[in-house]
Design a binder for these strands. Structure first.
Lengths: 165, 165
DNA sequence: CATCAATCGTTGCCAGTGCAACTAATAAGG
DNA sequence: CCTTATTAGTTGCACTGGCAACGATTGATG
């Protein structure tokens, strides 16, 4: 129906300008930060991205289920399941079946896991500080609010649980 | 040297609050948008994320090398190489050796590739509109500037070319 | 020129991950 | 209760994608 590059109007088809296309830019920025951060916990602690996320979640919340972690981090449940298995084998976390609902397992860091977390957390925060050092406190505050707003909206756009890492 | 949870100060080890930890939040947001966008070009056009990025780049720039696309999108060169092969087999792009430097190949969309791009671009832009509909024009402008600033800085933090997708 | 280094792109290999099917447990409905 | 639907988590399978080694070409050095 629309323009067919035939009539006199010569209406150019719209182009996506990647440098201004937000999904693309967000992915590039996320990749850059993710890769840089991964160097820290991969090289020094042998943690994959999903494993780090599990450790980070349990470090913050002490006890969570795998499902919580997956939903919170937009990861596939199988991804979390494997990360949990590997962390358990390494003795960094423990699983305890929830007696009120024996389908789910409550996860928590072991003392060794906590030790690693305590070593990692300052480095992660230091990395974040370096990353945002180009922003003023006000800019950082603004960015946080905008990201939050977009994330809430994006979650509503994709109701089903999906993931990556 | 620092706190050892021993003295009278009882200094709690620092914790990473994921809801405020920018790398995590950026990844969650990028995953959400990426997954939602991928539904469009995967289901309707059978394009993977790397393939879509190649098509999008060539759609915008007409001619680029694989290396350009990889560096621009923070993708591994092998990822781009395979996406290019698959797109070529499907007749969506053509490769032309650069006679000035026969190591590199100039990539461009075929008419069929351009047709797909012309069909995809409006949908991608419509998705972006929906995504940012929760932001005012000023907020969007602000966000763009902050993302740009952060991306430039993050690229300098990770000098070596790395990738994902 | 001859050699060595660097760069573009490809490919074999393997770790990682999404998907779908599965088990186990719980909830809902009759 | 018994049946059916739903949910938490696991796993086989296939595919994706990163890594590193490679071939081909170009550039840099002497």
């Amino acid at each position: 129906m629309a323009s067919h590059s035939a009539a006199k109007k010569e209406a150019l088809e719209p182009r996506v300008v990647l440098e201004r296309f937000l999904p693309y830019r967000l992915n590039v920025l996320a990749s850059l930060t993710s890769n840089a951060l991964a160097q820290i916990y991969a090289e020094r602690f042998g943690l994959s991205i999903p494993a780090w996320r599990v450790v980070a979640t349990l470090g913050q919340y002490d006890v969570r289920t795998a499902r919580d972690i997956a939903a919170h981090g937009v990861m596939h449940k199988s991804t979390v399941s494997r990360a949990v298995s590997s962390l358990e084998q390494r003795g960094l976390i423990v699983r305890r079946p929830n007696q009120d609902d024996r389908r789910e397992e409550l996860l928590a860091l072991t003392p060794e896991g906590r030790t690693i977390y305590d070593a990692l957390a300052p480095q992660a925060l230091a990395f974040e500080d370096r990353l945002v050092s180009v922003l003023s406190p006000e800019e950082l505050e603004t960015l946080g609010g905008l990201v939050e707003k977009l994330t809430l909206h994006a979650r509503s756009l994709a109701p089903e649980g999906e993931g990556e890492a």
